[in-house]
Design a protein around this nucleic acid. Sequence first.
RNA 1: GCGGGUGUAGCUCAGUGGUAGAGCGUCAGCUUCCCAAGCUGAAUGUCGCGGGUUCAAAUCCCGUCGCCCGCUCCA
Length: 535
Amino acid sequence: MQAAETANMDISDMVAMDELVALCKRRGFIFPASEIYGGINGFWDFGPLGVLLKNNLRDRWWNDMVVCPPIGPDGAPLQIVGVDTAIIQNPKVWEASGHVAGFNDPMVDCKETKQRFRADHLKVYFPDELIPSTHQPLNPLIEHVENLFSKEEFLLSAQSLEELLDVHKRIIKKNNWTFKDGCWTQMVSQLTPEQLKKVWAPGASKSGTLTEPKQFNLMFKTYVGATATEDDKAYLRPETAQGIFLNYKNVVDNMRVKVPFGIAQIGKAFRNEVTPRNFIYRSREFEQMEMEWFCHADEAKKWLEFWKEQRLNWWKAVGVESDNLIFRQHDQDELSHYAKEGYGTVDIEYRFPFTAPGYGELEGIAHRCDFDLTAHQTHSKTKLEYFDDSVQPPRRFMPHVIEPASGLTRGVLVLLAEAYTADPSRPSKMYMKFKPSMAPVKAAVLPLVNKDGLPEIAQKLYYEMRAQFATEYDTKGNIGKRYARHDEIGTPFCVTIDTDTPNDQAATIRFRDTMAQERVALDKISEFVRKSLKE
RNA sequence: GCGGGUGUAGCUCAGUGGUAGAGCGUCAGCUUCCCAAGCUGAAUGUCGCGGGUUCAAAUCCCGUCGCCCGCUCCA
């Protein structure tokens, strides 16, 4: 998240997270996982309405990616196929992909300042006065810099300038120091425990306040086979993308696809987040919607631009206000291990209630280069290059990959936050302004009173509608209560059967957003709702 | 992991040593001709858990766990 450009929208209009969380529980969208046992941090269950909402978003993505992919820049439909791969794969997959190494973040804590650092981000350096003049100019850098050895200690081991230089060189060599940003630096993660004790942490009053690096492995470990020995170790996938790369060859060999083409997948992924936070925003079990677009390296940039626009428009199409969405280019030093060499990663960020007025990541569109396919080719010793005979002369190359990867779980949170609309004038004080196509319940059929032949008419209509889209039938309480409940769950249309209905064969449709009513013939109501779902 | 906050009914919360409460919601019934109306009735809690002090603990003390917020990480 970051301080973004000023917003047009009044932030005070934004729903408070605790209100949203309370609504989600009260109305059956999202519950804390294993709540009756006290819950479990970082896991959430989708309730009856939540799963409807999630499936609507998921199905829309699948439809727009796989069933009916976008039209490409040349006017022809893109070619994208789907897969659904295993959550557990051969553990070598995650070594090849870089996740065993890259998802293993060593962290150190400062006992004095209570700050936590990534040991591989925290640098140690020689202070200016200890650096021989041959290495000048040397400016202190970066925020997180402190000296490794005390001045006295260093001078003790060096009798002359010659010797000083020599000791210096030996230390540099022995410790894998690098010369960067005008200074000799080394990552804290590479220090021995003895060296670590001499490090002066940022903001601390003395040296030696850092704890030894603790491994934070973000991958869930499990065991395949009932004996569960270390040899049976396996991982739950931290991203669905690798399942796609693993099947790239199968798809190319069997599915008559030609580069450029895409493979899409929706599925659960698991990460032992250091700190799960913000409701379902960062949970340890979550669902991804990922598409890997395979293309020639020369065209990667073009496709990155294409997918950026496509994806932003898609989020708008499912009902997200453009004011709440921005692009954010990743800085070079925050790029993932797979995106270093390419055109980088662009995030689509949303102004979540807990990030406002800043934004939080919703979807990443990354240029993964040929990192994954090359890695798997090397590790698996299987040739993964693509042979292209559609050009003259024919060529052989490793496709590059553009990856629009979004969080379905995060998408649900976006739809919820986006839909929550305060309205003090109505009994419920708020309503959920879902786009009709995303709303968990599309319509409710409500007999104004539960007698005088009204239920019979209403039920007939209900049976007709429920066969086409999610419809509820409700006779409970007075009509105001029923409208209020449907405002809270975001039902866009309430169809009310009144005492005129037996005579005129029509009923009123009550619109959620305006509370206005319109009388429509009974036999036109289904069609009316169906049409609105296509918008 | 560290720091701060918090834990009482499905939800929001009151209750600071003396028989566990309110509003809303839920359920049953009456009523009800368009926005949580009205009436009657009902269910729901070992007050997060464990220990201690006390004649007596939701309340005081100690411990522990969950959740929320901040820091590091991510879709």
